[in-house]
Design a protein around this nucleic acid. Structure first.
Length: 944
RNA sequence: GCUCAGAUGGUGGAACUGGUAGACACGCAGGACUUAAAAUCCUGUUCCCGUAAACGGAGUGCGGGUUCGAUUCCCGCUCUGAGUACCA
């Protein structure tokens, strides 16, 4: 029979499902291998041809590893909480779980068609209660933990309480809020329960605090920083504003250093690691206190100013700097307009200026503030500080180029070394003090670290390294500064005012958050009448009737999208466990993910949060490895490839019903129109389908080239509105899953982004037919010979065994596909139908094209399904050994001819043989070669 | 601006450690089979000169360098894509 892909693929997909072929074992002596894909959010649009790219690659790898004798865990599931289902619910009243279920079914049908070797018995859905029970459980563990910097790990909050009870707050080295109280053991014990709890909240790894959030009114929720792009929501593009709200946060900053260090231990793409490094943003520098200089007139103003709320005026302004060595070049201080000392520092004479400036800053949106980095603006507070090292009087300004959220919200301005300070100084006519002898500050700041210091008191003449050390030592000595490491990363907001997410297992008593009992998990998402905020502006959960904890109100926000995805790889290890998130034994066996494939868009979201939770789970003894994903690969994005037709514009400028072929448009006035790529083949428009596509094209006319209508091409995002979406279902219908799988790989290197172009798919389909034909005679009868293979046949086989092995190990799937084609071409030329060759070849191909491989494998008489665990053939190098080699002979590096010589021949003999050769003599034309380079088994280069 | 990745025929791409650039496939052209078409098969296909072949010249974004030899290494530049953005 001819290659009947439809029957074959259906048959084997059914077989795999019926026989649980890909079920991974938790109890086995085999070595483990864990291949994971980033699980999808099941959107209503279903899969397009770009989605399975990574899944196909990981599936090939998983199948290959099974053939290599590994017990492979290759699971799939759904990140099924999320905004789109909820938006749809708001519009239609349909419960998000209903939409989600329907979408999952579509995804499952599409995934099954491609023939993935997923162990579906371990499927997880983040929105299912027996899954989110454990997301809530982890939240509770975080709530019950604090970060001990001395131990450099998370510890139980009980341990902290016990410490407070015996020693008070002295000697505690924790990652905590700024405003923690100082107390001894007795004072702690005397504190009311409520105050104690408030205090502990400042240490917990998940905690409630008022923070500035990205509020998106249109979506009715708070967004994470990585969900905001240029002041607009990433999903939907709605405006986002800054708003203060009580919010759950995760103290991810406790792990900043470990998250940074861990990057050096994992095999991830360098750009991705770089993104995480930038996101963490470690700066090594110093914090310096500038004492306030007080004038008598100020005291009056401060007394009358109720906004400070403090009877003790602040004694100093603290700044963070990475260039403490430039401290003698400080000619002014700049603090953020939002800085807490602004009101206190503003003198009556300057009040009007400052108020006007703050008003102006507030009006500017975040977007303007970012875009407008050129204009220099600021205002003088009227106050002064003293340089802590030389007592120099320094004016204090406010300006919006200083961010309240970074460092201390205050900077020491060194115009000679920092360009922003330089521009500010020029604009407001402030002094610019050169501090390094080789500095050139005529037109701009010079941030050099080379040269010797000048105008710098006791560090004059020192080098950068010496000066930094000397200044830090001096500041520490006088108690006005110290070396400090600062991180850009902020604690992560952990909550959104939405319905379709995990409920937070917390209720409020006397305004303080309390955990529910572990035995009461999962805290189920309640039913509500509408998926909108309440009339009083509370989140949708506020609508749930009777939803309270013994009369106490539950937390009304739900967890953010990244909660469920921050630990899901552990659930796959032991998906049915209902006493733990995964058993100790399962985690002990599977440990971590060996290969993780997914998009780079998750660089600073999912991949950072997952590493954070993993480190926490390790700290509390639940996980074994410090890093969850040993090796990670980003598959490139598949872009859309749009086709265009060109509508002729008549003299009055109106569109006609005539369409001009692409090659002819320069002679006409036309307007381009997207045309459905599914009615275009190799950029040639199918005119009949075009006429049927839309009613108004039914009697379209065409101006053709060589009888064909050629379409224009452009690379754009794949989207419905551009008519460039290619659905894998259609391709499978036409060519089968094996062809689709191989073609997606054939397209190019996995990591590279590329436009989808169906044009070459025929070549892969033809290859599979040709492969099928190796096993069949001219009448399509299965026909295999048991004769001993020839040397040439063995060589072709072992070449491909080696090649595919090497390619898969370095994730170069595209080159394997080419090599398969070469192997089949060679064997076809050799008319090889020998069992000894083909039986091995089928195993090598199986990870790529599993259906056809299964079919031929069973036709060869093997037990059905056994190819999945059949041993990968052993490469035998002796079959590739050649006696002779056709040496390329180059003259001055240009190859002119080939001379076949024995590989055993020594270089000196090769040289002699080559020079004696007639072709070489001809090229030398009587001249003597200056030099001859012979690389044995490679090349000969004659220098003339 | 900064950081990173990339640039090879008409197209997707290959060349893994500095050693025959353009494998493999698409497309295109010509041919076989066919009344015809589809399908299938065969041949050719980097560019230039040349009727063709032999032969010759150029050639991996641009300009230099190292080397017997560079798509590969080094320096400078151009362009494209991604990330990031007043981070003190």
């Amino acid at each position: 029979m001819d290659y009947q892909f439809k029957d074959i693929e259906k048959k084997w997909q059914q077989f795999w499902a019926d026989n649980n072929t890909f079920k991974a074992e938790n109890n086995t002596n085999k070595p483990k291998y864990y291949v994971l894909d980033m699980f999808p959010y099941p959107s209503g649009a279903g899969l397009h041809v770009g989605h399975p790219l990574g899944y196909i690659a990981s599936d090939i790898f998983a199948r290959y590893k099974r053939n290599k004798g590994f017990n492979v865990l290759h699971p799939m599931g759904y990140d099924s909480f999320g905004l789109p289902a909820e938006q749809y619910a708001i519009q239609t009243g349909q419960h998000p779980s209903v939409t989600t279920e329907a979408n999952i079914n579509t995804y499952r049908r599409q995934l099954d068609q491609i023939g993935f070797s997923f162990d579906w018995s371990r499927e997880v859905r983040t929105s299912s209660p027996d899954y989110y029970k454990w997301t809530q459980w982890i939240f509770m563990q975080l709530f019950n933990s604090w970060y001990n910097k001395d131990a450099d790990k998370a510890e139980s909050i009980d341990k902290l309480v016990a410490y407070f009870e015996t020693k008070g707050s002295a000697g505690i080295n924790a990652v905590c809020d700024e405003d923690t109280l100082v107390f001894d053991a007795d004072e702690w014990k005397a504190l009311p329960e409520k105050i104690q709890q408030q205090e502990l909240l400042k240490y917990r790894l998940t905690y409630l605090r008022e923070s500035t959030v990205n509020w998106c009114a249109a979506l009715g929720t708070v967004l994470a920083n990585d969900e905001v792009k240029d002041g607009f929501s990433e999903r939907g593009g709605y405006p986002v504003e800054q708003k203060k709200m009580m919010q759950w946060s995760m103290r991810i900053t406790a792990y900043a250093e470990r998250l940074l260090q861990g990057l050096d231990t994992i095999d991830w793409p360098e750009p991705l690691k770089e993104m995480q490094r930038n996101w963490i943003g470690k700066s090594v520098g110093a914090s310096v206190k500038f004492p306030l200089e007080r004038a008598e007139s100020e005291d009056l103003s401060r007394e009358n100013d109720p906004t400070t709320g403090s009877s003790h005026p602040a004694p100093y302004i603290e700044v963070f700097t990475t260039r403490v060595d430039t401290i003698f070049g400080v000619s002014f201080l700049v603090i953020a307009p939002e800085h807490e000392l602004v009101a206190e520092l503003t003198t009556p004479e300057q009040k009007a200026d400052i108020d006007a400036y703050i008003a102006q800053t507030k009006k500017k949106s975040e977007l303007d503030r970012m875009a407008d980095t050129k204009t220099v603006s600021g205002a003088f507070t009227g106050s002064y500080v003293k340089n802590p090292l030389n007592g120099e009087k320094i004016p204090v300004w406010i300006a919006d180029y200083v961010l309240a959220g970074y460092g201390t919200g205050a900077v020491m301005a060194v115009p000679s070394g920092d360009q922003r300070d330089y521009l500010f100084a020029k604009h407001f006519d402030l002094p610019i003090i050169p501090i390094i002898d080789i500095q050139n500050i005529e037109t701009e700041a010079d941030p050099t670290k080379e040269g010797k210091y000048i105008n710098s008191d006791f560090i004059n003449g020192l080098s950068y390294k010496e000066a930094t050390a000397a200044v830090v030592a001096k500041l520490e000595e006088i108690g006005l500064g110290k070396a400090k490491v600062n991180f850009r990363m902020r604690d992560a907001i952990f909550g959104r005012q939405r319905y379709w997410g995990e409920p937070v297992p917390v209720y409020f008593k006397d305004g303080l958050p309390q955990l529910i009992e572990e035995s009461e998990l999962p805290l189920l998402l309640p039913e509500i009448d509408k998926y909108l905020p309440t009339e009083t502006g509370e989140p949708p959960l506020g609508r749930a009737t009777g939803w309270n904890y013994n009369g106490n109100e539950y937390e009304l926000s739900t967890m953010p999208g990244w909660a469920g995805s921050s630990w899901y790889w552990y659930r796959y290890m032991d998906a049915d466990n209902n006493t733990e998130f995964a058993s100790e034994k399962a985690i002990e066996y599977w440990k971590d993910v060996d290969l993780y494939i997914g998009g780079s868009e998750h660089a600073t979201g999912h991949l950072l949060y997952s590493r954070f939770w993993n480190k926490f789970l390790k700290d509390i003894g639940k996980a074994i490895e410090e890093e969850p994903f040993k090796k990670l690969i980003n598959q490139g994005m598949i872009q859309g490839r749009s086709n265009f037709v060109y509508r002729l514009i008549d003299e009055e400028g109106r569109g006609t019903n005539t369409f001009i072929s692409h090659g002819l448009i320069k002679d006409h006035k036309t307007s381009p129109l997207h045309v459905d790529v599914n009615i275009v083949e190799n950029d040639i428009l199918n005119i009949n389908k075009f006429k049927a596509w839309r009613e108004d094209f039914a009697d379209a006319e065409f101006s053709l080239e060589n009888g064909k209508y050629i379409c224009g091409v452009e690379v754009e995002k794949m989207s419905k509105s551009k008519f460039n979406v290619v659905n894998p279902d259609d391709l499978i219908e036409r060519y089968g899953a094996d062809t689709l799988r191989m073609y997606e790989m054939f397209l190019g290197p996995l990591e590279q982004s590329k436009p989808w172009n169906t044009n070459g798919i025929e070549g892969v389909f033809k290859f599979l037919r040709k492969f099928w034909r190796l096993f069949h005679d001219a009448n399509w009868n299965f026909s295999i010979s048991n004769e001993a293979p020839t040397k040439a046949e063995l060589k072709a086989l072992h070449k491909i065994i080696k090649k595919v092995e090497d390619d898969i190990e370095r994730f170069s799937f595209n080159t394997s596909v080419s090599s398969f084609m070469i192997a089949v071409n060679e064997l076809t030329d050799l008319k090889c139908n020998k069992r000894a060759i083909l039986e091995n070849l089928v195993i090598v191909l199986a990870p790529y094209a599993p259906h056809i491989a299964e079919e031929l494998w069973s036709l060869l008489g093997n037990p059905a399904g056994s190819i999945s665990t059949a041993a990968y053939p052993k490469f035998q190098p002796e079959y590739l050994v050649e006696d002779d080699f056709a040496y390329p002979i180059s003259f001055n590096g240009k190859v002119r001819t080939n001379i076949s010589l024995p590989l055993t021949m020594e270089p000196a003999d090769v040289e002699a043989a080559v020079l004696a050769h007639a072709d070489v003599q001809k090229h030398l034309d009587g001249k003597a070669p200056k030099k001859v380079i012979v690389v044995k088994g490679r090349i000969v280069n004659v220098v003339v």
